[in-house]
Design a protein around this nucleic acid. Structure first.
Length: 419
RNA sequence: GGGGGAGUGUCCCGAGCGGCAAAGGGGGCGGACUGUAAAUCCGCUGGCUAUGCCUUCGUAGGUUCGAGUCCUACCUCCCCCA
């Protein structure tokens, strides 16, 4: 590990957040000397960030913790264009309404990690729509566009994939990197931002901003990127058993969020403790030491609880851990497993198993899939494997707790509750 | 403007002499083994009121008993020439 003098870079470095820095010594000196303002941009492509974005939020978190000023930039303007970096094909264009709604929804998560306000080390939430949407095309071309060389832009890896595959890269998308570069300069002017951070896929875009800053007379700007997140076996981060690992609670409950981290691969445990929890380094080292063989499961639970506590609060995290304990270790029924309510009268009339799994709980996508899962032995009702796809559920199937437990595989459970 | 090529299962990549619900991967899901891990092996991976019916190969027509496959027009993309 390189020996950084500043708290911020040392912390990021020892926790494994750093992939590339534009000028290590220069940036380190800056952080050691003064309060630095740094930002990360978030694109409003969905109503919630997912686990992949967590690493960026954690970087801002440490930035604030070490006494600097964090800026979370919402891409209300750039979202109208769409980032083509390393994408295979063009994104669907989003309407302004969708973008605004997504931003409003995404924002909710940030205050769990950062303290916002007007004070010197309070974080700020800024939307680049503030300046991008008012740009005058001709002025922009003359002031900013003239500093960009298309020859150079074409050489970036981020667009090469698209070009190599002979897929179209629209002029609209091609402009994304110019807008992002301009953002950096604008933030430098307005808020004295000196550093932009992001995933390693953003390197080209960030460096463009630094160059533009040179030409437009800002102070020296810096870039810092985090490694691309994959699990030890190479899968992309942020995909869970049933889709993306959303951060917003209304899209993914604390229990399911906890489960995602509980299922971390052995080889990732220590890395994730460093990246996603705020546990001190010496404690992480101690935990990693302990985690030999199946004892690692205890560490995984702690990992899951710590990460969930940061996002959803300590109480919700512990409730999730308890639900998991009851469900997996006692084989019992925990009241706060995901629950679907059905009218008591409907249950009295009988509900086909296939319909219960497909339509009621959505554990499987269709009756056909439910049928296939029955064939493969993947569905269970109250822990008994379903063998007959014509079986019908009724009040007789209610457990003493007054629910019916439906399971897909060993890990996904939903309770059916008559009301 | 002229010439040449491409678009396949709504996750992706990709084969496809006129009989095709469409090869093969990857990914995903389930099963076995385990530790709610990884690796490995096996099964599944259009929909439905289901020995049948419906919808799928860029879009719309046409030829044919029958079209992903042949013809026409259009859309989108790539390459070459102007």
């Amino acid at each position: 590990m390189s020996s950084f003098k500043s708290d911020f870079l040392r912390t990021l470095s020892e926790r494994g957040f750093i992939h590339q820095i534009s000028d290590e010594q220069g940036l380190d000196a800056l952080f050691a000397k003064e309060t630095v303002t740094a930002y990360i941009g978030f694109d409003p492509t969905a109503p919630s960030l997912h686990a992949g974005g967590l690493i960026q939020i954690m970087m801002l978190h440490w930035l604030q913790k070490t006494g600097h000023r964090a800026v979370s930039l919402m891409g209300g303007g750039t979202g109208m264009v769409g980032d083509p970096s390393f994408k295979d094909d063009a994104r669907q264009l989003m309407t302004v309404e969708t973008i605004e709604a997504n931003i409003a929804s995404i924002k909710r998560v940030f205050s769990n990690y950062l303290t916002y306000g007007e004070g010197p080390t309070d974080a700020r939430m800024i939307n680049n729509a503030d300046w991008l949407r008012e740009l005058n095309y001709l002025e922009f071309l003359r002031d900013v566009g003239r500093h960009f060389s298309v020859n150079r832009m074409l050489s970036f890896d981020s667009v090469k994939t698209r070009l190599d595959r002979e897929q179209s890269l629209s002029f609209l998308e091609f402009n994304y990197m110019i807008l992002q570069a301009y953002d950096f300069v604008e933030l430098a002017k307005r808020y004295d931002v000196r550093l932009q951070m992001g995933g390693s896929d953003q390197w080209g875009n960030i460096v463009n901003g630094i160059d533009l800053g040179h030409r437009m007379g800002t102070k020296q700007l810096y870039a810092l990127t985090s490694p691309l997140l994959t699990t030890a076996s190479g899968a992309k981060m942020g995909k869970s058993v049933n889709g993306a690992v959303w951060l917003n609670a209304d899209m993914l409950g604390p229990y399911e969020f906890w489960q995602y981290w509980r299922n971390t691969e052995d080889a990732d445990v220590e890395r994730f403790l460093k990246l996603y929890t705020t546990l001190p380094m010496d404690e992480i080292a101690r935990l990693a030491q302990e985690a030999k063989g199946s004892a690692i499961n205890e560490v995984k639970k702690l990992l899951a609880t710590e990460i969930t506590a940061l996002l959803h609060g300590r109480a919700a995290a512990e409730a999730a851990a308890e639900t998991a304990r009851k469900t997996f270790e006692e084989g019992g029924i925990a009241a706060d497993l995901p629950t679907v309510e059905v009218p008591a009268a409907e249950l009295a009339g009988g509900i086909g198993v296939l319909a219960a799994f497909a339509e009621k709980t959505g554990l499987v996508a269709s009756n056909g899939e439910a049928r296939r899962q029955v064939k493969g032995g993947g569905l269970k009702v109250n822990d008994a494997t379903v063998t007959d796809d014509k079986a019908v559920l009724s009040e007789r199937d209610l457990t003493p707790e007054g629910v019916i437990k439906l399971s897909l595989g060993k890990k996904k459970h939903v309770l059916l509750k008559p009301v």
